[in-house]
């Protein structure tokens, strides 16, 4: 089993992600340069956070056309596990691998703090190690993170269980009554993370790689990586 962390010019969470997977969770992990034409030999790809290409034009818009993204798109369409975090999520949206888009935060500020998100669907490769309704404390760090999609898309996401994380409060009730109070950026329906219909591609604005050790203030982000590891162990039959 091998994880790949793609490095774009302007990525700044690539080393954090490598540390989370390699050092903390003891998984084989390698960097993949954005000029790479292929992702052969990898079992899961992570598009890390940062400000790829200076966020010019739109967040993730230029990175989406880099050579490695063709390979990542092919990998994703073939069923490979792809996780996009923050800027990586924005790339997946721009590439059309996930539906919708992100807008400037409603308050217009760059927000960097811990938020709480509730796991809405535990039957995905990214959440299977979580308990239903589990609330995770994970930091966000973005200006453009207000998830948006049209009503038809939102209805599809709801119906197919593709909304996997919603912003809520630290003691947010599962009925969602506390969610609005926990929404940091105005995201539609409090959406913090979604998956594609097939479930093998997911993206979220919060940074799980920045919440993998108690020293970082939370280790809750581990559950997302552990879910991917469990999924791969089942798929490839390699022991973790």
């Amino acid at each position: 089993m091998k994880f790949g962390v793609v490095v774009f010019p302007g990525s700044n969470c690539d080393h954090d992600t490598h540390h989370a997977l390699g050092t903390v969770l003891k998984q084989p992990v390698e960097f993949i340069w954005h000029q790479s034409q292929q992702v052969n030999g990898f079992d899961a790809i992570i598009l890390p956070g940062g400000f790829s290409y200076g966020d010019y034009l739109r967040t993730g818009a230029i990175a989406r056309f880099s050579p490695v993204m063709r390979a990542v798109e092919k990998f994703a369409r073939g069923g490979g596990l792809v996780l996009g975090v923050c800027n990586g999520f924005q790339m997946l949206l721009e590439a059309g691998l996930l539906p919708g888009a992100v807008l400037r935060n409603h308050g217009l500020r760059f927000i960097c703090r811990h938020v709480h998100i509730r796991v809405e669907n535990t039957e995905t490769p990214f959440t299977c190690a979580a308990t239903p309704g589990q609330i995770l404390k994970i930091p966000i760090a973005h200006s453009d993170g207000s998830y948006f999609c049209d009503e038809a898309t939102l209805a599809d996401l709801e119906r197919n269980g593709q909304i996997i994380f919603r912003y809520t409060t630290s003691d947010g009730r599962p009925d969602g009554r506390d969610d609005a109070a926990g929404n940091p950026n105005g995201a539609i329906a409090n959406i913090a993370g979604i998956s594609n219909r097939e479930g093998n591609v997911a993206g979220l604005m919060p940074h799980p790689e920045r919440a993998v050790e108690a020293a970082l203030g939370s280790a809750d982000g581990q559950v997302i990586f552990r879910s991917m590891i469990e999924t791969l162990v089942r798929q490839v039959g390699v022991s973790a």
């Binding site: 034009l57 739109r58 888009a101 807008l103």
Partner: peptide, 8 residues
């Protein structure tokens, strides 16, 4: 394809 994101 590039300059506009037709979702928004």
């Amino acid at each position: 394809d590039v300059l506009a994101n037709l979702v928004i």
